[in-house]
Structures are given as C-alpha cells and as structure tokens.
Design a protein around this nucleic acid. Structure first.
Lengths: 195, 195, 195, 195
DNA sequence: AATGAATGAGCTTTCATTCAT
DNA sequence: GATGAATGAAAGCTCATTCAT
C-alpha cells in the first residue's frame, strides 16, 4: 500500500506542514504547539494529524529529515583525501546551521525522553559519523590524539545550542569555532595534555 | 515594593520557596510546574503567588539570585594576582555547576526567549563580569588577545548547556574544558588567527 | 429517492458495506467508527456516506435489515402447527444469535436511545410479531395465559443483552433459557400468579 | 479561624459532582462527557478533574459507591432466616434499581475493558455475594438445585439491562421478575430439568 | 460514481492564576 | 498572611461529515 502515489494536493500539504513544522519547532523548540503549525500551514488541525498521527510523529519527521541529511553529509566526507579538513568542515557546518533549529538541537541530547522511535536513532548515528571523521582526522595528525568522542560531541552540541539560543551572527560563530578548533588541533603539542 | 518589614514567617516562606524553586526549575527547566514548587516547599500554591505574583516573576527571582551570586564571585576574582587562573577558574566553575541548573542555563540566553524584565539584567551583568576577567587575563598574556567577549561568552553558554543536557560526568567535562582552554590560551598566535 | 436503477457496482458496494457494518457494529456497538466499516469493506469513506448519508442512517439500515429478517422468520413460524414450540424456538434462536450483535441489541431499546427514524419501526414490528407467536402459544396452552407481551419482550431483550455483553457460552445460554422457559411455561397456574 | 473553612464547600462540590455523575453516566452510559457533568454540577471542568483526576476515576467512584452499597445489602441478607426470600428480595431490588443506571449496568459485565482498578472488583464481589445468597436459597429448597451461578448472574444482568434500557415501569418489572422467579423456584419438580 | 484528503466540533487533561475563608 | 479549591484557556487528539479530483 505504501508505493501508491499520494495525491498531489495531499503531497503538497504534507510538504508544507513539514516545512512549517521545521520552522515552528525550530523557533519554539519541541514545546511549540501543533495548532500553530496548522495555522501557519493554512490547514485545519485535523489535517496535520492525518499526515502525522501524533505530535511526536511530526517532530520525528522533522528530526529524521535533518539527521538524515547530516549523516549523509558526514558519510560523504568520510572518504575525503583531507580528513582534517573534512572533520573541521563538518563540525563547522553543523554549528553554523544550528540557528533557528531549536528542536533539532534539543534532539542532539539523544533519547532524552522526548522523541523515541525512528528519530532516536538520529543522534546516535550522527555521533558515530562524527566519531569516524574524528578518527580519520586524528590518524592524519590534524586533531590531537588524546581527544575522545565524548568531549568532541559535547563541544559540538554545546556550540550548536549556543548558536541556536544566542542568535550569534556569522563572525562571532566563526571566531568561537576558531577557538575550539585551535584547541582541537594538535598545535606544537607542548600544551596541556587532556586530563 | 513597600519598605515595610516583612513578617518573619513570611520572610522564611519566601526564602524556602526560592530555594525549592531553584532545585525544581534546575531539574525540570522552566517547564516545571509551580504547584510542585509549592508542594516541595510545604506551602500552599497561593502563598507562592503572594510572594511572586507570576510564575515568570518566580523564575526571574531564581535567576537573579543565581546571577547575583555568580557576579559576586566574578567581582571577587577580578582583583586576583593571577588573572589567567582567575578567568579559567571562573569559567570552569560555571560550567561544572551547570548540571542540574537547567533553568539558569536557559536564561543565559538573555531576553531572547523566556524571561525578560528584571532577569534579563542577570546575563548582561554576568557578561560584563566575564568581560572584566577576560580583559585582565588577556593583559596578563594568559588568554590570546584576539578573543572577544562575544565568542567567549558563547563558549561559556554552550558548554554549560552541553553539560546540563548531556549529563556529562566529571572527566568528560574536564577534557572538554581542556580543549576550549587550550584554544583560548594558545597565545603564541602562530596558528589560525581568528578571522 | 429516485427510482432509477442503481449501477451494478454501486449495488454491490452498498451490499458489502451493509454486510461489513453488521459485523463491525455487531462487535463494537454503535460506538464503532464509520471509517473502520469503510476500510473493511474495501471502499473509501465517502462511498459509505454516499450510500448512507449519515452514520445513523447506516446503523438504521443494518438494524432494519436484521429486524426484517427476524420478522420474516417470526411470520413464517406464526402458522406452525405447534405454536408452543414455535414461540420457544424463536425466542431461543433470537437470544442465541445475540452474541456479536451488540448494535442490534442496543437497538431493541427502540426509539428511546440511539437510532430513531425509520429504524424505530424495526423493534415495533418485531414486538408485534413476537406478540402473535406469544398469543398462539398461550392459546395452545404452552405458555401461561397471564404473561403479557411487555414482560415477554423485556425478557427477550434482557437475555439478549446479557448474552451479548457477558459472552455466555452455549451451555450457560441454554440453562438461562431453560429457567425463563420454565417460568413462562408453568401453565398449571398454581404458583405465583403474576401480579 | 476554624480548621475547615472551605472544606465543607469542597466536600459539597465533590458530593454534587458525584451525584450529577451518577445521573449523567446513568443516562448516557460511560460514554457521556465529563464536561456535561461539570456543567450540570455548576462547576468548571477543572474542578471535576481536581476531585477526580481522570474520567475513569470519576466513573470508578460512581461504580464503587454503587457496588459497595449492593454488596453491603447482599451481606446483610446472607444470614437471613428465610434464605429464599433473601435471595429473591435481593434479585428483585437489584433489577428494580437498574432504571437510569446505565453505567452501573455496563459495569456488571466485569473487567470489560472499561473500568479497571478498584472498580473492577465490584462486579466480582457482587457475583460472589449473589452466589452465597443463591447457595443458601438452594439449600433451603427455595431455588431449584440445578441452577448455577453463571446463568443466575446472567439473568440478573440481563433483566437489569432490560430495565435500564427499556424504561420498564413497575408493574411490567414485577411481572417479568415473576416469570423468572417461577422458573428459578423449584415448582413441583416435574418440568424441564436444566440441560 | 468513487475516492480520500480536509475540516471543525468535541473530548480529556494540564496549569497558571484568582477567590473565599 | 496563608490556604487550597475553583477557574478558564489552552493542548493533543478523534470522528462524523464535506469537497475537490
């Protein structure tokens, strides 16, 4: 039954709802109301629930879409001939994209009780993908070898949250990233081995 | 706002409510319910609203109290004879304390989201205080001179949020801080000048 | 309401919907959803509403169909050469069939509750038909002469409801019927004349 | 002042809500809306939920109240010196009271998926209590010895449902009961042993 | 004629806030 | 001053019914 083509108007509505939900949950976090999504999408509330039988399902759809894209990007970079650059690029792009994506950033926390099911996979896969990029970058000598995924992921999440909540503009974002990247890069190796 | 002295029991109640609110909102974020505060404080719900006419007012009081304490600490460290250490200590302590302080971390955002009014002052003052410590530490050569308050504050907020949401345990926290501190300290200026 | 002949596929659809509705409302009572009827009938929900402009109309159609059948059976038995047996047989068959016919049993109530309109006729006609069988059986001396239709019909409805809701299995049903039949038959009149 | 200033008011409200709920659920069955209960009780909807945290809880309260009363009555009759009369009295009273008590009658079905928890006990206890009365009545020779609790309970439930749904008036109720009682009583023992 | 997407009214439930004692 | 019962405005969700294809 799943391969039947959706009616054009329904597909449009579904797409518009998803788009609006991305924005609404992006601004207001997962606490934003489904009704507002309906209102801004110009459809009745029941239409939202027809396409996504649950608020959670709607949230998951938004998250899955995002995490899928992120993971695809990460996988695409995994074979890069410049692993250091791949790692830093991905890290930076993620943080740059965090503005106005509150709900997605919330989900970085993982199975924090909010979204289960298919969407709970997202953060885990992303973490793994980051782990791969990190490993390559370390092998290539671009990232200090004593940095572990735990703290790298924490920095990723933290910066993203900051960007999402503080509305940092591009130059500030770039400089914050610069500081963290410097800390991550193996400089001359003379400073502060991680505890 | 009258200057009449409060009855002793009333003052006690106010204090206890504030204490409990700190804990409740610390764990559950600003979404936690006012009734729970009343229950745990052992007072009726109306008593909470007598002292704080609005949930928002209660939240602000919690935040103000917290930020006042933080600012006092910062001011106390401002005259330290080792400005570098003072700066990193304060930064580290703030991040370490972030666990179980969800509402406060939320408020770092400033007037952007939840609590405006009086509480919006808190982050600003704190920001300034951090600015002072940062300036001294830079003068002393302990922090790279091209780092500005904007991004330093962003890193502070970001790491705190990560700690609060990811439940990072001490060693991971320490290593994450170590990376950021290395990025901040790297005073030789030879690598990655900030854009 | 026109007398134009229905298209063949339409007639088939109508029949299938009615059939499925009988089952669905039979299991779930009148609270069962119209969509489920459509789904199980393999038609769109709009098709159901094209044939039956209202859920109530659908329910009524189910009931009317059922009551018509029952009335035909009753009329068929009305000329039986053994009126006592005819009466008890009909009574017993009705009760035995009650399992899985929740909606029909609900409708025995008549216009009192759920379905008025055309369907309210159903119970009345059935009532009459039972009245005829009862009268013959009394004339033949198989049923005590002081029993009136009111209470006989009540017993019929009551037992049916019990069967439908308590999921009585065959032996229990038989024994319950046995008790009522004994009470109805006791034609020697020596005990407990009805008030 | 007094230690129960508003308590009385609240108790009154609770009582009124329960009373109204009895009536509303009695008429409309468990599907009736909580809002209607609030409206007829003259309180806001939230007040109902303050006293009964769930619709189910409200229903349970209604049922428990009823079943408790019924069981108490049954236990009171269990030691009667005239067991036959005790049994028939209880049976009759139960059926007589069934008018306008749809929800309670629904619950006779037992754990039919509707009300669990404390209220699910009700029907079971009632069944047991009826079993005791039946046993005594059979020992005393007032009820035929081959009647089992299964069918007796079924007759009880069935008649109650009929009364509740058909709005039978007193004389009809009495005659219907008379027929069943005759069937239950051991007449001269000559007729239709139960299968 | 048939389809199924869209709709809005209604239900249960929660929570900040007010009122009477 | 303190209490807790009462309140109404949402929020998430369902379902009979209508409309465009």
């Amino acid at each position: 039954m799943s391969t039947e083509p959706m009616r054009a108007d329904a597909r449009d509505n579904r797409a518009r709802i998803l788009e609006v939900a991305e924005d609404v949950f992006g601004r207001g976090g997962s606490a934003a109301s489904t009704e507002q999504v309906a209102r801004l999408a110009g459809v009745g509330i029941a239409t939202v629930f027809r396409h996504f039988p649950t608020k959670r399902a709607l949230l998951e759809a938004v998250l899955v879409k995002h995490f899928d894209r992120l993971c695809r990007q990460a996988h695409g970079l995994a074979e890069s001939s410049d692993p250091g650059r791949a790692f830093f690029d991905f890290f930076g792009r993620l943080v740059d994209d965090a503005a106005g994506k509150l709900a997605i950033i919330e989900a970085f926390t993982g199975a924090g009780g909010d979204a289960g099911g298919r969407a709970a996979q997202g953060p885990l896969e992303l973490r793994e993908a980051v782990g791969v990029l990190l490993g390559r970058a370390q092998e290539a000598g671009a990232v200090r070898p004593d940095a572990r995924l735990d703290e790298v992921y924490a920095l990723l999440v933290g910066l993203s949250r900051a960007v999402a909540h503080l509305h940092l503009d591009e130059p500030v974002r770039a400089r914050a990233l610069g500081i963290v990247f410097d800390g991550l890069a193996r400089g001359d190796g003379e400073r502060r081995p991680l505890p």
